[in-house]
């Protein structure tokens, strides 16, 4: 049984002088260890939703709980230290070296210097930055590298929850993709609960185990990427996620979400040639394999190359 890491209970936020609430009577349960993306246009309330969790914004009414405890129970900074926070503007401290930036919260927590050093070494490896960057200053790093430091700094105190507000929004497309891939790896490895705000449909689909689609201060749909694509809850969601290019849509679906699991495969087709893809591969790559001559089935294999399911031409057609 997994526990709810974050719970919203009838939460409303109305900013002073605003005509309508930024977030309206929202109920939400975020499972521990899940990667949830919050998708919506600017002004839809997605950032407000996120920033109420670490009390950058205070709800006008309703309650927010972390691990079953109301967030107002903690002294403000004790709450925030338990929550990693990564923002689009990065906000590294320019007068401090990379290692001093990362050490900020461990120093507040009064960790012994040796433990802080080990943590810095570990985190630099985790975010794929060379150890030689320790003594550099933020201005000497590229935007993508700076955000890697931002990520390392946010994880320094080993928080169970990470809040990320369009962290890759200002980073070039190529670097963004590798950062996204690494985020997926990091979450798999460390099993953090991540809430990730984005306005980029592709990014939300790629990163999220589940997606919160927001509009006008209310949650339109909270579901897996596949469900959001296959069964949009309303016209708004459909319009938002609908790609006019079906080929691109295939890119958003992971092979493991579309496969027939192995235990239910009754009759393995023995004819024709088989190919294999990893669980995380997109249906686009499955399609490309199926289009090859003689290929009739694509096996989906796990990390140990053991088949866990299969996708045939018929199965693929069912999913799109």
């Amino acid at each position: 049984m997994s526990q709810d890491a974050i719970v919203f209970n009838e939460v409303t936020k109305t900013f002073p002088k605003a005509a309508k609430p930024a977030v309206n009577e929202t109920n939400l349960r975020i499972e521990a260890g899940s990667f949830v993306t919050i998708l919506g246009a600017s002004g839809c309330g997605k950032t407000t939703l996120l920033k109420m969790i670490n009390r950058i914004h205070e709800p006008s009414s309703g309650r927010i709980l972390i691990n079953g405890q109301e967030i107002t129970k903690w002294p403000l900074n004790e709450l925030r230290i338990q929550i990693g926070y990564v923002i689009q503007g990065i906000g590294l401290f320019p007068h401090l070296t990379i290692e001093e930036n990362i050490a900020t919260i461990p120093k507040v927590l009064k960790w012994p210097p040796k433990r802080i050093q080990e943590r810095i070494d570990y985190l630099l490896d985790l975010v794929h930055l060379p150890q030689s960057f320790k003594k550099r200053y933020p201005a000497q790093l590229s935007g993508g590298q700076q955000q890697r430091v931002g990520l390392a700094r946010a994880m320094a105190g080993d928080p169970a929850i990470m809040l990320m507000d369009e962290p890759f929004g200002a980073i070039d497309a190529i670097t963004r993709e590798s950062l996204q891939d690494e985020m997926i790896q990091i979450q798999k490895k460390l099993n953090k609960t991540i809430m990730f705000v984005t306005h980029d449909v592709q990014e939300a689909m790629k990163l999220g185990d589940r997606i919160i689609v927001m509009n006008d201060g209310t949650i339109q749909q909270y579901d897996t990427p596949l469900e959001v694509l296959a069964r949009p809850a309303n016209e708004f969601v459909q319009k938002l996620v609908k790609s006019d290019n079906q080929f691109n849509q295939l890119d958003l679906i992971k092979a493991e979400d579309a496969m027939i699991p192995l235990d239910s495969v009754s009759n393995e087709s023995s004819q024709g040639v088989a190919r294999a893809v990893g669980r995380e591969s997109s249906l686009k790559s499955v399609l490309l394999l199926l289009l090859q001559p003689e290929v009739t089935v694509v096996w989906v294999v796990d990390e140990e190359e053991t088949p866990v399911g299969s996708i045939t031409w018929e199965q693929l057609k069912l999913k799109v």
């Binding site: 403000l76 709450l79 925030r80 923002i87 503007g89 990065i90 906000g91 700094r153 946010a154």
Partner: peptide, 26 residues
């Protein structure tokens, strides 16, 4: 840069520490 202050506050730096260690030197 407001992002610096937001990051500092958001990560849980107290206002005194934020003032002496971050805001004043900058």
């Amino acid at each position: 840069n407001p992002s610096i202050i937001e990051a500092g506050r958001g990560m849980g730096l107290g206002s005194l520490r934020l003032f002496w260690r971050i805001e004043l030197p900058l």
